[in-house]
Design a protein around this nucleic acid. Structure first.
Length: 420
DNA sequence: TCTGGGGTCCTAGGACCC
DNA sequence: TCTGGGGTCCTAGGACCC
């Protein structure tokens, strides 16, 4: 067999960057409220408008609001969790995902700001547009993170990527006032780890030959994809660092973690990862869920639950419509007061984005779930999505069941539903 | 006064078809 | 008639990430 023709695009060593905004939500808030700089600030909580007091005086600019007018953590009651905490707040031991009530005990004087996703999304769009102008191969990984393929960007190979990383940092800071950290490496796996090395406002370059010195001493948990469960299992097997993981025999890893995870652990520990930078992707599902202010009972709180349920269905339907999708797998999610969760879903023979139809199907799913225990969360999900424009093409080819139930109001279905 | 909300991907069993 | 596969879809749960 003749040798395959060489493909320079494949052989060329990749330079992949991971760019991570520093303390993104907190930094955006500090642009609005610079008077909070250096203070313990916690962002989180539900939709209760803790900054009503601030907005109540529009003639007073935000940056002039005196500290005493900001709400404090100690006055919070509810089930929210911390989304972000500033460094000053972290000194007190509070951190991401911690319940606000618990945080209030550790640092009652901390200032509590509500999460303002609309504002964070604006800044997210802004910094991503800046990146796209400079380096067009960008993968969106959420509101504050991206991967960027430096390989073919002019200057992307200089100093291992440092020159381009510096340019991105500088431009983003000039245009938004926000700092970020960048890691550049031969692949996404290593780039992600590298971006943490010199936080905040740092750059780290990792080359293939740096594996032993820079990666192997790290805890296994630093690998994106090894979470608390896998880490615990690794620890129980006596493996703490990535280097120790790399020492393990592939067959031994497969025995303990299965073929897929076993191979992946082996590859990751050796710094190997050939995932491409993905520029565009289609959503798989859309959902809405809510945790109640107090646990609700399916029978005793039937009316309240029914109203919430309907609202969730309407929100999902609105999300689908706004983004231009239809779906055919409808499901519910419940979390009981003991925090155990269950899901039920069912697939239709046609696509829909209709609130009433979603409500009806979700109601069917709900009937298959035990409802003796009290509930703390209810969610509605639509999956198996298709873009609306494609769905319409399908519809022309072969007619599907009617999506529009017309004036058959949601209210009537709520009454008919017998859900609780 | 523990533990949000919105996602993706994987596994595993069963149904069903070829 | 019996046996054995493979492939795909559906469903439930769980790990993980931002």
């Amino acid at each position: 067999m003749p040798p395959l023709p060489s493909n320079p695009a494949v052989i060329r060593p990749r330079r992949i960057a991971h760019l991570d905004m520093d303390a993104f939500y907190a930094s955006v808030e500090l642009l609005r409220y610079p008077q909070l700089k250096g203070l313990p600030v916690v962002i989180g909580g539900g939709r209760r408008s803790v900054d009503d007091a601030l907005l109540a005086q529009p003639e007073r600019p935000l940056h002039k609001i005196p500290l005493r007018d900001f709400p404090r953590l100690e006055s919070y009651t509810g089930r929210g969790v911390i989304t972000t905490a500033t460094y000053a707040a972290r000194q007190f031991g509070v951190g991401s995902a911690m319940g606000l009530m618990k945080a209030a005990k550790l640092c009652p004087q901390a200032i509590l700001l509500p999460v303002d996703f609309a504002e964070y999304r604006r800044y997210s769009r802004a910094f991503k547009d800046i990146i796209l102008d400079i380096a067009p191969l960008m993968e969106d990984r959420g509101v504050d993170e991206v991967y960027i393929d430096f390989t073919d960007v002019p200057g992307g190979q200089r100093e291992g990527g440092r020159v381009l990383a510096r340019l991105l940092q500088k431009t983003i800071f000039q245009q938004t006032g926000l700092t970020c950290s960048v890691g550049v490496a031969p692949n996404k796996l290593l780039a992600k780890m590298a971006s943490e090395f010199n936080k905040p406002n740092g750059i780290a370059i990792v080359l293939k030959e740096d594996l032993q010195d820079k990666i192997w001493p790290l805890a296994c948990r630093k690998i994106n994809g090894i979470g608390p469960k896998t880490d615990e299992k690794l620890q129980s097997l006596g493996i703490t660092t990535i280097g120790e993981l790399a020492q393990q025999d592939l067959d031994w890893l497969i025995d303990h973690f299965g073929p897929k995870t076993g191979v992946w652990l082996h590859e990751a520990s050796h710094g190997r990862d050939d995932r491409p930078v993905v520029l565009e992707s289609e959503p798989v599902s859309m959902s809405r869920e809510t945790t109640f202010e107090r646990d609700l009972h399916a029978v005793r709180d039937k009316a309240e639950l029914g109203a919430i349920f309907t609202q969730l269905c309407q929100q999902v339907a609105a999300d689908l419509a706004r983004k231009g999708y239809v779906g055919k797998t409808i499901g519910v999610k419940l979390r009981y007061d003991d925090f155990k969760a269950v899901t039920r879903d069912q697939t239709l023979d046609h696509y829909t984005a209709d609130a009433a139809e979603i409500r009806q199907m979700a109601g069917q799913c709900l009937k298959r779930v035990p409802l003796a225990k009290r509930l703390r969360l209810l969610g509605v999900r639509v999956a198996s999505l298709m873009r609306l424009d494609e769905a319409q093409v399908h519809k022309e080819n072969k007619p599907v069941a009617p999506i529009d139930k017309g004036e058959k109001a949601i209210d009537s279905i709520v009454i008919e539903g017998q859900l609780f």
